[in-house]
Design a protein around this nucleic acid. Structure first.
Length: 898
RNA sequence: GGGUGCUUAGCUCAGCUGGUUCAGAGCACCUGCCUUACAAGCAGGGGGUCAUUGGUUCGAAUCCGAUAGCGCCCACCA
């Protein structure tokens, strides 16, 4: 007999088994004749570290992968990392800043050297951390969005889309991140409500003759103390007045008719600008006068275009005031706002300031940075075609979203889709494969798009006038592509399906099975992968998308460094074991809801590990002897087979619906309640007594099956125990064990045990209330006929001497009811009559109330006439049962009162 | 501003097409137990007018409408 510690120690086993799995190649997958099951990992940032979001996301993926593997599928989980253009470049820039180097001091090549150094230094840390969690990825396939295969894929796709006419270059108002100094896509801007100010500024009428006209009816003419007339303009951004090139009124606005055709003077700047008219202006807002700054507002840009206005860009790329501005040159925009409002005030040009709430766009990657609308030339992808191919399969459930509520969100986005700005003014990323040719005119652009410089040269020479151009004359586009322009190919490029379409791997693994990701990247990533999937692999990239929730703390707050409410996953693993943490995550992870993470749940996970461990200790401690199998054990085995059949079917159903937390809860209860609290207690031999062979064999079989059911959730402890349950060969693993197919559950047996449990609970309750010692054997009286197929189990677990059917129970006894039958434990006179009466009367009252409800229903003619027969019959049965129960209780009370 | 979802025990959630003895689970809580597998445990127990309000129906947590609160997505009104 082996002696094992009473507490399970995860540290001793986790690394051992991970190494075992890896060294025996158990995570590896190559195409074969089996059904494939594939997940591609949402690639974490290459320089990132594991946080709770990864923890949740990857636990779920590992559960799905391990489950599929145990179903006999060829399971493949492909790992990798993302180059995360903006985020990584920002980190490198920060590190260089610490060394006193700015990006501008370096050439592109030098900067990239630093970036690669950083990547190699920090890259892959997160993948090592995933191993601690037990992630069963095929590490031999680890990919990087900027490795050779992926890079080539990205460039090929760019060239292809350009040639198909979907990619174009245009001068547009784009979102500009002044910190990263790059354009962003619409999706990378997050709007936040902000308390700001509305400044009312005086725009004096130019060359005012100050004639005394008061204007037509409804006109509002403003004059200062000297009688000079002015328009009052409301703005949230006074610092942009340096870029004003017009003031706009609505032609239908009666208040401002007098301004038609006039010119006004921009305050402080003293530039004279025309008053234009456009119905775009909201008459009700502010004073109905809008200042027009075409370079710094999308609407104003549009007005500028229609009215042929000059565009003055007063910002540098870093959002300091540019030399194009007459004032405040070099000042930061935030400073400038403060300064200019003071100066306007001092000059008497600011009439009032109101509190105002509006939405301000922030850069997703630089959360403190307000994005600036900026006119610039960028590369765009026309999205219309892609929306058309990607919307239908989701709407008709060929490709399923879990939970399905995201379908609608997806639909709305697709239907209102905007072109995607794919160029970034960054170096870290895939360089855009466009080559510019020298032109006489600086504003004119001639370029070719080609995979390589050689091809570009070839193409360039076909352009009339450029027949003799040399490689040195080509200027490679400086921009990099949006990170998501590589991620959207991930499910294809991982199998090299862009460079080698139709290769064996892509044919076998694509479409992949399930994608597990957070909903915040549904547009960035999920939607675009679906687009690329249909465009480049002719099919959906995955069959199901499981959207996890966001991990929050137990108070529902987002996890953040400032709040300090974000636990370090590795510390948690250290404290509770990977299995415990995995379980803790899953316990609070109902599909699609936010996760309110609480460390207490990991504790629950750890406790469960310990429970399994101790159940194992118990079973392993039994000595087998050549003795007959007791009746109760025989029945328990029969019953537990039924429980397994039922639960396995339930669990499989829950998996298919991605209700993993419920699947876990089902196996948790199966192990703790049914197996440990009931089954083991039934078959457990008396202290130091041996067990019969049949029961032992069945028990070990059950334990084995339970471990298999638990394995996807808790891979380490289950492997450890599975290896101990029976002799295993080197290289064998529970990972490869199959889940049994459930049979039809023996419902009669399940019903019999359900009743038996109630009876046992009844007796235990009597013991508890009457303070009867647990070891004293009791006698149980069943009033009327009694016949249970599992009576021997009741006798054992309730601690009974026997069960006897009696016509009338002892007067001095504690009674309880199970269904319609009364049971009693004779108490040899020491009963508290009052207490007993109170209990019976409470039961009686309840039964009477119940009966009244049922009878009221039955008295309702319309119910009897309209309800289905079965429902009415059921009500009648309830009536009869309640009546019999009332009779029993009344008799019992009368007997006690004697 | 436009959509959309949610509101069931102290907490986190189940409850599918309305009817299985007047709502279930886990955790938390209360009581009693250190009973040789496990106190990271065992046994027992309490706790909900299913947000509010109209309606449909013989019958509503479940269907429909309104209200309130919370959340999410989208959006260039200064």
């Amino acid at each position: 007999m082996i002696t094992l510690a009473t507490k399970y120690d995860p540290k001793a086993v986790e690394s051992k088994w991970y190494e075992y799995w890896e060294s025996h190649g158990l995570f590896k997958s190559v195409p074969d004749g089996r059904e494939p099951y594939c997940i591609v990992i949402p690639p974490p940032n290459v320089t990132g570290v594991l946080h709770m979001g990864h923890m949740l996301n990857n636990t779920i993926q590992d559960i799905l992968i391990r489950h599929a593997r145990m179903q006999g599928k060829n399971a493949l989980w492909v790992p990798g990392t993302d180059h995360a253009s903006i985020a990584t470049e920002a980190k490198v820039v920060n590190r260089l800043a610490e060394q006193g180097i700015t990006k501008r001091d370096l050439t592109r090549e030098q900067f990239l050297e630093h970036a690669w150094a950083w990547t190699h230094e920090h890259g892959g840390i997160i993948l090592k951390q995933l191993r601690k969690l037990g992630a069963s990825c095929d590490w031999s396939r680890t990919a990087f969005t900027m490795d050779e295969v992926r890079s080539e894929s990205v460039l090929k796709v760019f060239v292809d889309l350009y040639e198909k006419g979907y990619i174009y270059r245009a001068l547009r108002m784009v979102h500009w991140d002044p910190k990263a100094q790059t354009a962003l896509s619409d999706a990378e801007v997050e709007h936040k409500d902000e308390k700001s100010k509305l400044y009312y500024l005086r725009y004096y009428v130019a060359d005012d003759d100050m004639t005394g006209e008061t204007g037509a009816e409804g006109e509002v003419v403003r004059r200062d103390a000297q009688g000079r007339r002015y328009a009052l303009v409301a703005t949230t951004r006074p610092e942009t007045i340096m870029g004003d090139t017009a003031m706009c009124i609505n032609p239908k606005d009666p208040k401002n008719q007098w301004l038609r055709g006039k010119k006004v003077i921009v305050p402080l700047v003293n530039r004279v600008i025309p008053v234009i008219e456009d119905r775009y202006v909201d008459i009700e807002f502010g004073t109905g006068c809008l200042k027009v700054t075409p370079a710094h507002d999308p609407n104003d840009y549009m007005l500028g275009k229609t009215h042929n206005l000059e565009t003055i860009d007063i910002f540098n790329p870093d959002a300091t005031i540019s030399a194009a501005s007459p004032l405040y040159v070099g000042m930061d925009r935030v400073e400038c706002r403060k300064q200019i409002s003071q100066d306007l005030e001092a000059a008497g040009l600011m009439e009032k300031v109101e509190d105002y709430e509006n939405k301000v766009g922030y850069s997703q990657r630089n959360p403190d940075t307000v994005v600036e609308p900026r006119l610039s030339k960028q590369w765009f992808l026309n999205m219309k075609h892609f929306a058309e191919i990607a919307l239908p399969p989701v709407m008709n459930d060929e490709l399923k979203f879990f939970p399905s509520k995201y379908k609608n969100i997806y639909k709305v986005w697709m239907e209102g889709i905007q072109d995607w700005c794919i160029s970034r003014q960054l170096w870290w990323g895939h360089r855009i494969p466009a080559y510019y040719l020298p032109t006489a005119n600086e504003d004119e652009e001639v370029y070719v798009v080609a995979l390589t410089e050689a091809e570009a040269l070839e193409k360039a020479r076909k352009i009339p006038g450029y027949e003799n151009i040399q490689a040195a004359d080509l200027r490679h586009d400086e921009n990099a592509l949006d990170t998501w322009f590589s991620s959207w190919l991930w499910p294809i490029s991982l199998f090299d399906g862009i460079n080698h379409p139709g290769n064996d791997e892509i044919k076998y693994y694509y479409p992949t099975s399930d994608l597990v990701t957070a909903p915040d990247i549904i547009f960035f990533w999920v939607a675009r992968m679906i687009m690329a999937g249909y465009e480049y692999a002719g099919d959906m990239p995955f069959r199901n998308v499981y959207f996890t929730g966001l991990v929050r703390d137990s108070l529902g707050r987002k996890m953040s460094k400032q709040l300090g409410n974000s636990p370090d996953p590795l510390k948690l693993i250290d404290k509770f074991g990977a299995d415990g943490v995995r379980m803790g995550m899953m316990l609070c992870a109902p599909a699609g809801n936010d996760i309110l993470f609480d460390e207490a749940l990991c504790e629950q996970g750890r406790n469960f590990n310990n429970k399994i461990w101790n159940a194992f200790r118990l079973v392993k401690g039994w000595e087998v002897a050549d003795i007959a199998q007791p009746e109760h054990s025989r029945l328990a085995v029969q019953w537990f087979h039924a429980v397994l059949d039922k639960t396995i079917a339930e669990v499989e159903d829950l998996y298919s619906k991605f209700r993993l937390n419920e699947a876990l809860m089902a196996v948790y209860r199966l192990f703790w309640e049914e197996f440990s609290a009931w089954y083991l207690e039934i078959v457990k031999p008396a202290y130091q007594q041996p067990i019969d062979g049949k029961t032992m064999e069945a028990t070990l079989y059950f334990f084995d099956i339970l471990l298999r059911l638990l394995h996807p959730f808790m891979p380490f402890i289950t492997e450890e125990l599975w290896q101990h349950i029976a002799e295993r060969n080197d290289g064998e693993s529970i990972m490869q064990a199959r889940l049994p197919k459930p049979g039809d559950p023996d419902t009669a047996m399940l019903a019999a045990m359900a009743q038996a449990k109630e009876i046992i609970s009844g007796v235990r309750n009597v013991r508890s209330v009457k303070n009867l010692p647990p070891r004293d054997l009791l006698c149980l009286q069943a009033v009327g006929e009694f016949d249970s197929p599992v009576a021997s189990i009741i006798i054992k677990l309730a601690g009974l001497e026997n069960i006897i059917a009696v016509a009338e129970k002892d007067a001095a006894s504690a009674a309880f009811m199970v269904g319609t039958q009364e049971f009693a434990v004779p108490l040899a006179g020491n009963i508290d009559v009052e207490q007993e009466l109170a209990k019976l009367e409470a039961d009686l009252k309840h039964a009477q109330g119940f009966l009244a409800g049922v009878e009221k229903k039955l008295a309702n003619e319309r119910f009897v006439a309209n309800a289905p027969e079965a429902v009415v019959a059921l009500e009648r049965k309830k009536q009869v049962d309640a009546q019999s129960k009332i009779a029993t209780l009344t008799a019992a009370i009368a007997a006690l009162r004697k």
